[in-house]
Design a protein around this nucleic acid. Structure first.
Length: 769
DNA sequence: TATCTCTAGCTTTTT
DNA sequence: GCTAGAGATA
C-alpha cells in the first residue's frame, strides 16, 4: 500500500474528500467530534506525500496554544519532528508577531517591540484618560479600552473613527483612541489587537511584504474558523491573496475548518458571518460537511442536537453516531453548591472505585471560573486528585508581573507602562508626587517618560531626596542593562531579583503570602531555564532542517524571545496529559473545554442566571451564544454525561435562588435519569427567598408578609418611556424592555451620575410612577 | 510619603 | 466574598 493510501485509510467519504481536495478554497463544516483535527493533519500529510508540497510552504493557524500544540504533536507523529519544525503551526497572534518582528520597522516600531496584554493596555488607557482630565465616572477607562478593542477588531483606525464621531462620548473616545495609540507607539508597544491590525496594515501598505509571505505560504489552513473576527478574516484574505487584480503570485490554497454551532467568542468580536459567507467571500469555494460523530453515544448527541436546534436561522446539521444509545444522562438537583460538589465527588469516587474509570477520564465543567472554588474545597477535603485549567494565571500574579516589568524595561527602555509599574517597586522613595512631576515635565518638554527620568535634575519643584532616588533608580537600570547582552533570560531574572532588592524584601517580610511569592519567583526562574533548554533545541532543529542556509552559530534565546513567549503563551497550557497513570480529574470552564473530550463529563451549575449567565438573559443573540456553549459542553462527553444544578447558590456573599436552566428543559426528558429531581429548599416560603442580587423579594427578611412577595404581585409592567423610582438609584426613565414574564429586563437611564442600568424587572426594587 | 481603612464594583469567556 | 482604588491618618 502506498503512503498516500495509508493516509486515507480509516477515513469516511467526506473526510477523504476533504483530505484530497485540491485547487479552490475549501470549507470543512465539522460537527463536534467528527474527526476534524484528524482531517487537518492528514490533509497536511497528504499535501506533502501526494502533491509534493514542502513543509515550509504550510501555515496552519489555530486560536489557542493548546490547539496549536496538539496539531503539532499529531503532525510530528505522522511526519516526524523535522517536517513539523519547519511548518508554521501557531495561533493568529504568534503568526502575526513573527511577521511583525521582521517587518514592523517599516511602521516605526522597534523589532523588539513590547506586547501589552489586557492589563497593561488597561493601565495605559487609565494614564491616557487621566492625561485628558476625563471624569472616570462619565468616561470609564475600562469601557474605552473595550470599545477601542472592538474598533481594532473591525480594523477601524482612529482617523476613520474620529470622522464619524457624533456624540460627546464618541468624540472623547476618538481622542482617547488617538492618544492611546500615540503612547503605545512611543513606548514601542502593541496591544493584542494591534498584533492583528498592524499586520493587516502592513500587508496592505507594502505589496512586497504581502508577496513575500504569499510566496512562502502556498497552503493556508485555519482551524475554528467560526471564531475569527473581521481583522483575522482580512489577515487571511491578504495572506492568501484572494482578491488581487493581476496577481504576481497566484492565490494560495485556503482550507478552513469550523462549526457555526460552536462559535462561543462572539463577545470578543468573532463573527459567524465569516463561516456562513465563506462561499461568497471566496468564489469557487467548495464546502464539505462532516456529520458523523466518533466521540459520543447517540443519547448524548440527541441531547445536544435537541438543545442547539432551538437556535434560529442555523443551517441544518445532523450529527449521528454509530456508538449505540449508551447510558442515559444522569441528572441531579442539589440543595446548594456544596451539595452539588459533594454529589460530583461522590459519583467520581464510585466510578473510580469500580475500576471502570480513572480520574483522568473525568472532567467537571462550569460557566465561570468563580465556580471552581467550591469544587476545589470538596476535592481537597475528599482527597480526590484534581487539576484546574485556567483560573488565576501564574503570569498574572503581582510578583511575576513586577519582575516581568523589569525585564521588559531592559528589553525596551521606552516601555512606559512597565517603567511606571516598577519605578517604586520595591519602595525606593519615588512617590506619587515625584512621578507626577516627572510626567508633567515630560509633557511640557515633549519627551517620553523614560527620557524625563534621565533629565531629573531639570525637573522643577522636585525634592532633593526624590532626585537622588530617581538617580539611584536609573543607575540600577543601567547596571542591569549592562548584563543583558551576556546573560541568558534566567540569569537576568536572577539578577533583577537580587540587585533590585525585591527578593530580600520578600524574604524579610512576615506576611505568609510573601512566602508563596518567593516560591512563585523561584518557579519563574525555572520557567526561564526550561524555556532556554527547549528553545535552543528548537532552533537547532530548524537550523538542521534548513541545512543549506546559514546555520546560526549562536542559537541563544534572547530576552525578547523569552518575553514574547510569555505574552503569547499565556500559561504552560496544561492539557490533561494522558501519559501519567490514571491522571487527575480536570476542572475547567466551558470555554476552555472546547476542542477536548472526556469519557465522563459533569456539566454543573445549570441554573438560569449562572448558565445561561445573568447578563445574557435579556438578549436573544447572547442567549444563543450561551446555548452554543451548552452545545459545546454536552458534546465533550463520550460515554457518561451528568447534568446538575443547585437550588440555592451564594453569589456576592448572599444566597440566590435560581430557577433551573432553560437548557435543561430543552433536553428531551426521556434521555435523563433524574437521580434527584427537585430540592426541598425550593418549597421555602417566598419571603425567605432572595433574588439573584441578594435582596429579599417581600418585606424585610422574616418580618415580611409572605403574600407581599414582589415575585408575582409587584413586578410592574414597563414600557419604553415610563418613569420609575429605584430604591437605590432614584428616578429613571425606561429606555428598552426585553424578554417576557419573569425574565423581562429593562434598560433604565438614571441620569448622568448613574447612567444606564440593565435590570431584571422581577427582582429590581423599582416602582412605576 | 507610607500605611491603613473603607467602599464600590464585580464575574463571563482568551490571545 | 473579594479586590482595587480612594480617602484618611500617622
Amino acid at each position: 500500500m502506498s503512503s498516500q493510501e495509508q493516509l486515507l485509510e480509516g477515513l469516511n467519504g467526506p473526510q477523504r474528500e476533504a483530505v484530497t481536495h485540491g485547487g479552490g478554497p475549501l470549507l470543512i463544516v465539522a460537527g463536534a467530534g467528527s474527526g476534524k483535527t484528524r482531517v487537518l493533519t492528514h490533509r497536511i500529510a497528504y499535501l506533502m506525500a501526494a502533491r509534493g508540497v514542502r513543509p515550509g510552504e504550510i501555515l496552519a493557524i489555530t486560536f489557542t496554544n493548546k490547539a496549536a500544540a496538539e496539531m503539532r504533536e499529531r503532525i510530528q507523529a505522522l511526519l516526524g519532528a523535522r517536517a513539523a519544525a519547519s511548518m508554521w503551526i501557531m495561533t493568529f497572534h504568534s503568526a502575526c508577531v513573527r511577521i511583525l518582528r521582521r517587518e514592523a520597522h517599516r511602521l516605526g516600531y522597534p523589532s523588539g517591540f513590547t506586547i501589552y496584554d489586557s492589563a497593561d493596555s488597561a493601565r495605559l488607557m487609565q494614564l491616557v484618560c487621566k492625561e485628558m482630565d476625563l471624569d472616570p465616572k462619565r468616561f470609564p477607562p475600562k469601557s474605552f479600552s473595550a470599545q477601542i478593542s472592538n474598533l481594532k477588531n473591525e480594523l477601524v483606525d482612529y482617523d476613520t473613527f474620529a470622522e464619524q464621531a457624533q456624540t460627546e462620548q464618541e468624540k472623547k473616545l476618538a481622542e482617547a483612541y488617538r492618544l492611546y495609540q500615540r503612547r503605545l507607539h512611543e513606548a514601542g508597544a502593541m496591544d493584542f489587537d494591534d498584533l492583528i491590525m498592524v499586520t493587516v496594515n502592513l500587508l496592505q501598505m507594502f505589496p512586497d511584504v504581502a508577496e513575500h509571505y504569499r510566496r512562502r505560504f502556498r497552503h493556508v489552513m485555519v482551524d475554528e474558523y467560526q471564531d475569527t473576527n473581521h481583522a483575522q478574516y482580512v489577515f487571511i484574505r491578504e495572506l492568501v491573496g484572494a482578491e488581487q487584480e493581476a496577481p504576481v503570485v497566484p492565490p494560495s490554497e485556503l482550507c478552513v475548518v469550523g462549526d457555526a454551532d460552536q462559535s462561543i467568542y462572539a463577545f470578543r468580536g468573532a463573527t459567524i458571518r465569516n463561516i456562513l459567507e465563506f462561499e461568497r467571500d471566496f468564489p469557487d469555494a467548495r464546502t464539505i460537511l462532516l456529520e458523523q460523530n466518533y466521540r459520543s453515544t447517540q443519547t448524548i448527541l440527541s441531547a445536544a442536537n435537541a438543545v442547539i436546534e432551538r437556535n434560529e436561522g442555523r443551517p441544518a446539521k445532523n450529527l449521528w453516531s454509530e456508538q449505540g444509545e449508551g447510558t442515559p444522562i444522569v441528572g441531579y438537583v442539589a440543595d446548594n453548591e456544596h451539595d452539588e460538589a459533594a454529589f460530583v465527588v461522590g459519583e467520581i469516587d464510585k466510578l473510580t472505585d469500580d475500576g471502570a474509570i480513572t480520574p483522568g477520564e473525568v472532567a467537571v465543567f462550569y460557566r465561570t471560573n468563580a465556580q471552581s472554588r467550591v469544587f476545589e474545597d470538596v476535592f481537597i477535603r475528599m482527597g480526590l486528585p484534581y487539576k484546574i485549567v485556567g483560573g488565576v494565571r501564574f503570569y498574572e500574579r503581582k510578583e511575576i508581573r513586577d519582575v516581568l516589568a523589569y525585564l521588559r524595561v531592559l528589553a525596551n527602555p521606552e516601555d512606559t507602562v512597565s517603567l511606571r509599574r516598577i519605578i517604586n517597586v520595591p519602595k525606593r522613595g519615588i512617590g506619587a508626587r515625584a512621578e507626577e512631576s516627572l510626567e508633567l515635565f515630560a509633557a511640557r518638554e515633549r519627551i517620553t517618560f523614560a527620557q524625563a527620568l534621565r533629565r531629573v535634575d531639570e525637573v522643577p519643584a522636585m525634592a532633593t531626596r526624590s532626585v537622588n532616588a530617581v538617580r539611584n533608580f536609573t543607575a540600577l537600570l543601567d547596571e542591569l542593562a549592562a548584563l543583558v547582552e551576556a546573560s541568558s533570560p534566567s540569569q537576568l531574572v536572577e539578577a533583577v531579583l537580587d540587585k533590585t532588592g525585591y527578593l530580600s524584601e520578600l524574604a524579610e517580610s512576615k506576611d505568609i503570602q510573601d512566602e508563596s511569592r518567593v516560591e512563585n519567583l523561584e518557579e519563574f526562574v525555572d520557567v526561564a531555564r526550561e524555556f532556554e533548554n527547549t528553545f535552543t533545541a528548537l532552533l537547532e532543529d530548524e537550523a538542521a532542517l534548513e541545512g543549506e542556509e546559514v546555520v546560526e552559530e549562536d542559537a541563544e534565546p534572547t530576552l525578547v524571545d523569552f518575553l514574547e513567549r510569555i505574552s503569547l503563551v499565556a500559561d504552560t497550557d496544561q492539557l490533561p496529559d494522558a501519559d501519567d497513570e490514571g491522571g487527575v480529574v480536570t476542572l475547567m470552564t466551558l470555554h476552555s473545554a472546547k476542542g477536548l473530550e472526556f469519557p465522563v463529563v459533569f456539566l454543573t451549575g445549570l441554573e438560569d442566571g449562572v448558565f445561561p449567565h445573568m447578563r445574557t438573559l435579556g438578549d436573544k443573540t447572547q442567549l444563543e451564544e450561551e446555548r452554543r456553549l451548552a452545545y459545546v459542553g454536552l458534546t465533550r462527553a463520550e460515554r457518561l454525561l451528568y447534568v446538575s444544578r443547585a437550588a440555592v447558590r451564594s453569589a456576592w456573599g448572599s444566597p440566590s435562588y435560581n430557577p433551573p436552566s432553560r437548557f435543561l428543559d430543552e433536553v428531551p426528558p426521556s434521555l435523563v435519569d433524574w437521580r434527584r429531581g427537585e430540592s426541598p429548599v425550593l418549597s421555602a416560603p417566598p419571603a425567605l427567598r432572595r433574588g439573584p442580587s441578594g435582596r429579599s423579594f417581600g418585606g424585610e427578611g422574616f418580618g415580611g408578609t409572605f403574600g407581599r412577595s414582589r415575585q408575582k404581585t409587584e413586578a410592574p409592567t414597563l414600557s419604553v418611556g415610563d418613569l420609575v423610582n429605584h430604591d437605590k438609584f432614584g428616578m429613571g426613565r425606561v429606555q428598552l424592555v426585553d424578554g417576557t414574564g419573569d425574565r423581562t429586563k429593562a434598560r433604565i437611564d438614571f441620569g448622568a451620575d448613574i447612567g444606564e442600568k440593565d435590570l431584571m424587572v422581577k427582582y429590581a426594587p423599582i416602582e412605576k410612577l
